[in-house]
Design a protein around this nucleic acid. Sequence first.
RNA 1: GGGUUCAUAGUCCAGUUGGUUAUGACGUCGCCCUUACACGGCGAAGAUCCAGGGUUCGAAUCCCUGUGGACCCA
Length: 772
Amino acid sequence: MEPKIKETAWNPEIEKQILKQWEDSKIYEFRPEGDIFVIDTPPPYPSGRPWHIGAAAHYAQIDMIARTARMEGKNVLFPIGIDRNGLPVEMYTEKKYNIRMHETDRAEFLNLCSTALDDLEAEMIQIMKSLGLSGNFSEYYRTDSEQYRSLTQATFIELWKKGMVYIANRPNNYDWVTGTTIADAEIIYEDIPTKLVYMKFKIKDSDMILTIASTRPELLCACQAIIVNPDDERYSSVVGKNAVIPVINREVQIRTHPSAEKEFGSGAVMVCSYGDQNDVALFRELKLEEIVAIGKNGRMTEVAGAYSGLKVKQAREKIIEDLQNQNLVEKIENINHRTPISERSKIPIEIIAMEEYYLRQKESVEKIKELGSKIVFHPSMHKQILMNWLESITIDWPISRRRFYGTEIPIWYCKKCSEPHVPEPGKYYRPWKDACPISKCTKCGATEFVGEERTFDTWMDSSVSPLYVSKYNRDEEFFKKTYPASIRPQSKDIVRTWLYYTILRCEQLTGVTPWKDAWIMGYGVDEHGAKMSKSKGNVVDPLPVIQKFGADTFRFWSASEINLGYDFRCSEQKIETTKKFLSKLWNISRFLSGFPIIKSAKTTPTDNWILSELDNVVSECRKGFEDYNFFVPSTSIREFTWNLFAAHYIEMVKGRAYSTGFSEEERDAAIFTLHKVLSTLLLLLAPITPFITDYLWQQIQYSDKTVHKEKFPQTENPQDWTKFTKSITEFNSNVWNKKKEQSLSLKDAIEMEIPEDLQQFAKDLKAMHNLR
RNA sequence: GGGUUCAUAGUCCAGUUGGUUAUGACGUCGCCCUUACACGGCGAAGAUCCAGGGUUCGAAUCCCUGUGGACCCA
């Protein structure tokens, strides 16, 4: 019989047609009824070209989650969004047009950002579509839309009214390049080579010299105390006395404090506003008066005297030089200092006191620990990242940012008494340009207002994503059915931000955990295991790879190469070799497409053996799918298909299927089994490689609809025949080896004994090897 | 300094509750067009399972110590 499939290899070009078929027939449309499964999809951030191949692999797997749930009979809400708020696009725009945000007209700057985002977004959507994501593209959302931003603002207003927000002037992490306060979660630490300068301080009214080591000599002008450890006998005689700050020539008192480490530097520490978080704590504890030495522009202020106007780094070099000239330096050590760096602009942050809005989070920590412990993490080990983060939260969340491209903080201040007012929730407010919606100050009765200019930290937007997709505040009925969501898929580097903030905000607003499961993926690294970065030039662009090898190849690579939760290596060569498996599957299908589909038959021992192995595969796959792990199913399917089904079973029954020397009943049993195995494999593979499986399913005509409307196969627990697997494969190997030794062709006849335990397979084996 | 995690052939990786000869793939080297597939088939070489110690009749697997890497936190 002529095979229905003609070509000898899978052509990824066909994917485009299939994609169109899916779109036209709307097979992935969500209906809010029955068993509902909601994915809190991460909206990707279009921060520049190219998009990360690891991210593409990540989305391919999220789609597998969606398809798995669908094949288990669930109605799946798989939203697609684009995250468009925040610093990266502002920096991208500044660079692209060579402008500075704070020196550009706000409305104009926002327009430029928006245009830049549109371009980058278009490419991402194209990649996501060509990957075959079964998400809701027709209603894809943007986090900078009026609707989304009005939700961010409404949730803020709700928390404001509950008293969860307050304003405070306190030292905070400040990034002078981007000109804004940042949260602890946005800080990374890097070891940077730094000079540890041992400076000589004179003790007043004595000839004694006190040596103090510091990495921040430029902060001498902001020094308000010197501390030594209370147990440090070297300094017990000078405690209580005053020391003279070198170069600055101002006096400060020497005190004791347990945070001074005897072993670090000289054991004496200068306390300045503010070298690090420890200084902040000491200023508060010792009630010292703050001296503002560094301005918002990252330069030294007038209190720095001769150094005023210099950037911090320049001031440091200059003051070291001056100290050396005046013979006030004992020595300089080169050390690697763990330095806090702004995640965005990569510069060391400064700690500067500023007035910012804070969202209360400290009192929620215990509650979130409790909620967090109930969320099922995949893999479970990554729950620890959240728990460790919760342990380290010491201050509330500063949520205001001095940036433009973000959701505006919806507050107006009374011009007369400065009382802040929030408007009614539900609309999108831009206080920097909109007229004030409040008519009269509730405190003093004045009628003139001035709008807040700051925006929110972007995590204020991102942290309500599960509320947005389930239409919180917009559609009560829909919300009830779709919240909490089923699963949050995301990568492990944003556990302490996105994952944590979402639980925090949703708990504050709804009192419950936003999802039942959290699915945490590792990073994509390059082929040598190094992190991909634009500066290293090792970023792999996913688009050409997908175009070259096809989405299914890329997806199968993603499934079979990535162990959930662990970092994975991306190399084009690996992806290329994955394509071979799809060719194998294609050719098996091509062979089978020549035989009629037989619905039932009286199977022989050989058939029972492969069906028994197949049942194991089904059970393995179901276990993997249950854990949202695609590594297990893809590898076990590949191994079974290639090394048992194709290599042994098909070879054993080929003669029987062609009916040479076999009864019709025996032939039908072989054909029945071949189709049974292949159709089961296609179903199991459908969530992983949706294109090729759908194409083959429809070409062979296993049913009159798409494979994606089918349900997963169940295990049937037939009698266990797998004990014969080893004997069968070994016997076949022996025959092949014998023929090779005797330089026989595989079709040549040979004399060999079939072992006792394989007698029931004898007829197939004889036909297969031409045994005499 | 604390935490998480990893260490298995040239490379990547599997190994479920400890049980004969350690899985598969890529790569390498032979041989082979055998009517699904040369994007294929068969075969071969290649591993002190990071080191040391312990528990055990028996350890890649469990425990301890150390070494090296990745990440997180202070």
